[in-house]
């Protein structure tokens, strides 16, 4: 019987210890709440925000300083994309001179359909990279041509 009473009080004390442990953790959180807040107030700090290394966002075609890209239109990204958000539109020009020009190559990228898996990036690493920042109000800014 004394054994049972001992067990009863031991259980209560252990429970209290567990509760205090939990409260210590949350207490630490609120004590350091100013410094450790994870939430980003995004559109306000767009200029200063530094994204994490492993962040995957919208895909952009990299351009060099002369504003030329190195896309050959091989369609590897289109094949790799799981939900068809990338489409390579290849239109041969009507005149022979225009047919040679690269600018007729048009990769179409629909951001609203993209799931940010970055499969296309791993396929054509030097050509594309993930970029932070997608915020838009219009349909026209969602589909990138």
């Amino acid at each position: 019987m004394f054994r049972a009473i001992y067990e009863y009080f031991k259980e209560i004390l252990l429970a209290i210890r567990g509760l205090i442990n939990g409260m210590r953790i949350t207490g630490k959180y609120i004590a350091h709440a100013r410094k450790e807040i994870i939430t980003q107030e995004y559109p306000d700090n767009r200029d200063t925000l530094k994204m994490f290394d492993r962040f995957r966002g919208e895909v952009v075609l990299l351009h060099n300083e002369n504003n030329e890209h190195r896309c050959t239109g091989c369609s590897a990204c289109e094949v790799a994309c799981p939900n068809g958000s990338i489409e390579i539109i290849w239109r041969a020009g009507k005149t022979p001179r225009r047919a040679k020009r690269k600018s007729r190559l048009r990769p179409s990228y629909t951001t609203c359909r993209c799931v940010r898996c970055a499969t296309c990036v791993s396929c054509r690493a030097p050509l594309m990279r993930s970029k932070w920042g997608m915020i838009s109000n219009t349909r026209f800014s969602i589909v990138r041509n």
Binding site: T26, Y29, I30, A33, I37, I38, T39, E41
Partner: peptide
């Protein structure tokens, strides 16, 4: 507000 600070939110 307090709940947010406990969960490290704003």
């Amino acid at each position: 507000r307090v709940c947010a600070f406990f969960q490290l939110r704003l």
